[in-house]
Design a protein around this nucleic acid. Sequence first.
DNA 1: GGCTATTTTAAACGCCTGTTTGAATTTACA
DNA 2: TGTAAATTCAAACAGGCGTTTAAAATAGCC
Lengths: 208, 208
Amino acid sequence: MSTKNKILDAAEVLFADKGFNGTSLREITSQAEVNLAAVNYHFGSKKELIKAVMSRYMNELGPRLESALGALCSEEIKPNLVDVFSAFIDPLLHLNNFKENGTSIFLQLLGRGYTDSQGFLRWFLTTQYPEVIANFTDAVHKAYPELSAEEMFWRLHFTMGTIVFTMSSSEALIDIALSDFDRKVDIAGVIKQVIPYVAAGVAAPIIR
Amino acid sequence: MSTKNKILDAAEVLFADKGFNGTSLREITSQAEVNLAAVNYHFGSKKELIKAVMSRYMNELGPRLESALGALCSEEIKPNLVDVFSAFIDPLLHLNNFKENGTSIFLQLLGRGYTDSQGFLRWFLTTQYPEVIANFTDAVHKAYPELSAEEMFWRLHFTMGTIVFTMSSSEALIDIALSDFDRKVDIAGVIKQVIPYVAAGVAAPIIR
DNA sequence: GGCTATTTTAAACGCCTGTTTGAATTTACA
DNA sequence: TGTAAATTCAAACAGGCGTTTAAAATAGCC
């Protein structure tokens, strides 16, 4: 295991748990059992390390997401919104093969990135991976063409908020669900719960 | 204007903008034009200052929210979910009278509190203001009695996520909407957009 | 006016942060 | 095996953090 990967592995877990600002390089390097200076040697700075952590996941997720959404767009029959959102399930759950708890970690990182560091991660994702977003809006437009561009903009951001926020606090919520309802829920279970919710939200009647 | 209030006024804006961890006491006190030590003198610690900032809003919002939701529950006719969520509008917008941009600041603070500081604010709100949550779940249950307690739990947290996340990045989103659609949107406009979304999400058909 | 209690102030405390340095060590290749 | 490049390492850097201290200033009250 290379030093670079030891750092990435330790960093992603700590970042997901405590946020980017809330995690120090000393925590990361001692967890990874490497020297403190290794981060700056291999990545240049903490900011570049954050980008590297996100890129590793996006490079794994991006192509699968594109092909899943692309397949949906090229079909003859018009998809419904549940289909569109369900297209996310397999690519997201595949991250669990890539890495233990990969799905959960990635979604938590996404949530952290949206609120930490004054939205620089939003800039990073939208500029580095614009085709993912374009594919998604295309699919939604095909499923629900009556929605104007502006209404779609807002509803997609509401959806992003629902997913990202839920997942960034999913551990706490899963614990509450376990103690209140004696129900063991995993990340796949949460995703299955959230899809009808966001699909109905995006499909809500338009009030003008 | 008392020193205490000067600190609270400066702190809430900075906390909303940059998070609790991301804002230093030195930023707060220099913005408020008071001495650095004043925070620890008047509030004891940074953590207590955060609680004080949140309490000032909750004390303003709580009673209005309770009466709005209480009125809904005591009505003869069964409310629908749009009514339930609409009950939040007036109490929330009233915060704009209480304080300039009060609605926006409060919702941003709420969002920060859920992700910053490992959820201690969730603990603070649920233990200090449980009746608000109870009123809300009662109203939703009356509007949609088929929903089981567990399904309601998840859908309410999805809703919380949608609102809180949207509002915590509302400034950035409003800017994008302005440049992409030439549409000036304010916080009330965003709230009106989000209500049909969350109402439809909570009302989504149950998949068992 | 004088005394007490409250508040404000400048300075320092100890600790933690990301980053840099230069020497020691390991690795890779001829 | 010898040499040059790549990597690791301990140590220190400058700066920011929340908090504390004790003296100075202000306020309230008899």
